[in-house]
């Protein structure tokens, strides 16, 4: 086989495999959005689901009657964005400390942080609620933000990335009289941008999709996040919401997160350029 045919073959395999994977990734989502445009009563089982006879927006209209979409959307956006910004800040600060400082107890503390990754906070949900109440955050969107402003897993991820930052840059900045926080802000953050961006996109989506905690802490529909409102459509006792409407709801939950992700992607792209420069 010549080099050229080998290249062509390689191209074929790579693209072919990825196309199959993409099909599997997209299919359930497409399936969901197709059904959300079908009339109630049209068959949605088996292959019928994919045949759409008379597309309708009625399911979405119904959804807007059922739940306060705009308020819920705003709540979701607020908790996801503020939650992500705060967690990025505190995690990267701590990650930087673990990666680039030598101080007594560093290793012990770091192992401790890793060990705490293993404790699911959900295990202590009941006492957690009591604490939340004490600090007056029940039924407040801040209850979803404050406890997770700094997470072990975020610290771990960012620390791993920051290990690769050359010490020399930091030392020279220190010699130039830059403050410690200034070094973090002007040197560490720009270099760590790709890691920060990928962590941000993951966090923002996880927060958007968060279900357990909002359900526990939030008490009325004007405070609910979109995820909670939509998830209540089918599970609630005595409900008979047709699937088309439920899937319209899930589509409405998923579309903003896709948009959010695409926005993050553009950041990430510029971040990668910056990351490549340092190499």
């Amino acid at each position: 086989m010549s080099y050229k045919t080998k290249e062509v073959l390689r191209k074929l395999v790579v693209h072919g495999l990825l196309c199959i994977i993409v099909a599997f990734c997209l299919f359930p989502v497409l399936w969901m959005s197709i059904i959300s445009f079908k009339e109630v009563g049209e068959s949605i089982t088996g292959f019928n689901a994919l045949r759409i006879q008379s597309p309708t927006l009625a399911n979405y209209k119904r959804l807007f009657e059922l739940i306060p979409i705009w308020t819920n959307l705003l709540n979701s956006a607020f908790t996801s964005i503020v939650g992500t910004v705060t967690t990025l800040f505190f995690c990267s600060l701590a990650g930087y400390a673990f990666a680039k400082f030598d101080f007594p107890g560093r290793n012990a503390l770091f192992y401790f942080v890793i060990a705490t990754m293993m404790i699911s906070p959900e295990v202590g949900a009941v006492p957690m609620f009591v604490i939340m109440r004490r600090v007056g955050l029940v039924n407040s969107l801040w209850s979803l933000i404050i406890p997770r402003m700094a997470t072990a897993i975020g610290i771990f991820y960012l620390r791993q990335y920051m290990l690769d930052i050359p010490d020399a840059i930091i030392d020279s900045a220190r010699i130039d009289g830059c403050s410690e926080f200034g070094i973090y802000r002007r040197i560490v953050v720009p270099i760590a941008k790709p890691a920060l961006a990928s962590w941000a996109s993951i966090t923002v989506i996880a927060r958007w999709n968060d279900y357990f905690w909002p359900l526990l802490y939030l008490r009325d529909s004007s405070k609910y996040t979109l995820m909670v409102s939509v998830s209540m459509l089918p599970v609630s006792d005595g409900l008979s919401t047709p699937w088309q409407v439920v899937l319209a709801g899930t589509t409405l939950v998923i579309v903003p997160s896709i948009i959010l992700y695409l926005v993050m992607q553009t950041y990430q792209k510029s971040g990668q350029v910056a990351g490549a420069v340092k190499g």
Partner: peptide, 21 residues
């Protein structure tokens, strides 16, 4: 400085994870 940078995590951990656990 490093202690200060890590402190927020430790405080949050104490209040929202250790005590409930």
């Amino acid at each position: 400085h490093p202690y200060l940078f890590i402190a927020p995590y430790l405080i949050l951990f104490l209040v929202f994870q250790l005590v409930p656990t």
